[in-house]
Design a protein around this nucleic acid. Structure first.
Lengths: 196, 196
DNA sequence: TATCGTATGTTGACGGTGCCTACATTCGCC
DNA sequence: GGCGAATGTAGGCACCGTCAACATACGATA
């Protein structure tokens, strides 16, 4: 049983294996040659699909955002009016905590420096969605006298910040208690539960 | 004019040049051999002072935290009672925006994975300081019925989150307006200006 | 069905990296 | 003044990303 000259769907296999490796060893130990080795393919084969390591990370980022958007979708689909903002924020945090390495790739400076148009568009679409939910909530009386731009900055900072605090070691509280999820929800409610 | 065999204070020179390079080109383009080249020293000389690249990043992180603590000190020194929390949070954000690459090094997973005791102690000391300020504010009536742990999580998430949102490209708002500083302060006040 | 351009994969090379070992020089202390 | 420890050098190893030259397979077109 010798391998065929052509892999068949090397691009997808690379992406899948890359995401796998990512969550096992982190982005620092991700290498094109290592992936090639894993997939029993020559060391330069990946370059046919991702001319540059940054291109691979970019494609991973696209999958990550798709994933995040999907999580947001289902969270919003099951949430009635007043709870939508909370559901959206908790969905982000939950996704980021379960996909910490993907979230890290999104924040990788090199990725955004050479971001594809697709990725950039997905990100602004996601931001617009958050803004839409904010204005919807404001129309229903929540913090209706507040500057929407300030609310947007606050919401993004708080969600991303909470996700990062929960996944990056520097912020890890030495006295971590078991009821972390409750604390997260309570923290979010400090923002959501008032000002209407 | 031939160079002396011994550099004299290579360790300090390495740290200084590393931090310089860091803010110019980012952590991805920082290399021990590159530093050695810059300082006209053999490629393996840096290893005498930092046996591993991670050790160098660790030392940089220590300098970064010292820097951050100093910024917090002066901010708190000039702030009367009620404004202390605000001053502390804005000092963090301001420092992080002016030292984005240092802030990134702090968040580097490898750095914390092999953090020196010194670094770990500095970080918990800093966290304890934030907690002390929170309880001081609570004693003076601010959100006095709230769980201190929740307030701490919220404060850290919001400050770190805002700093990251302002410095990482993924979060960069396509419709950025000039009055960013005002928005930051207003966002912080959404947390601080209520609940007492 | 034969052909030919293109997509995909292979091989080998180049310069870069972190890190190791063996050796050289200088410093500081007895 | 001498000697051990601290510091620097030289060379090499294995890995990395990337490039160029070459090989094979696929798919459309004649």
């Amino acid at each position: 049983m010798n391998l065929p000259y052509h892999h068949g769907n090397l691009r997808e296999a690379l992406l899948a294996r890359a995401i796998e490796t990512l969550s096992e060893e982190g982005v620092e130990h991700l290498s094109l040659r290592g992936l090639a080795r894993d997939l029993k393919v020559s060391h330069a084969a990946p370059l046919r699909h991702f001319p540059t390591k940054t291109d691979l990370l970019n494609a991973i980022a696209v999958e990550g955002v798709e994933n995040l958007v999907a999580a947001t979708d289902t969270a919003l689909a099951h949430s009635p009016g007043p709870a939508r903002l909370r559901a959206m924020m908790l969905a982000y945090i939950d996704w980021a905590m379960h996909n910490a390495e993907l979230h890290r790739v999104l924040r990788n400076p090199d990725v955004m420096r050479h971001a594809s148009d697709t990725l950039a568009e997905m990100l602004t679409a996601f931001a617009n969605r958050q803004k839409a939910e904010i204005s919807r909530a404001q129309e229903q009386g929540w913090r209706s006298d507040e500057d929407p731009a300030v609310l947007f900055l606050h919401l993004v900072s708080l969600t991303a910040g909470t996700a990062i605090v929960m996944t990056e070691d520097i912020y890890r509280d030495p006295v971590t208690t078991p009821e972390t999820q409750d604390k997260i929800a309570a923290s979010i409610d400090l923002f959501l539960g008032q000002g209407n």
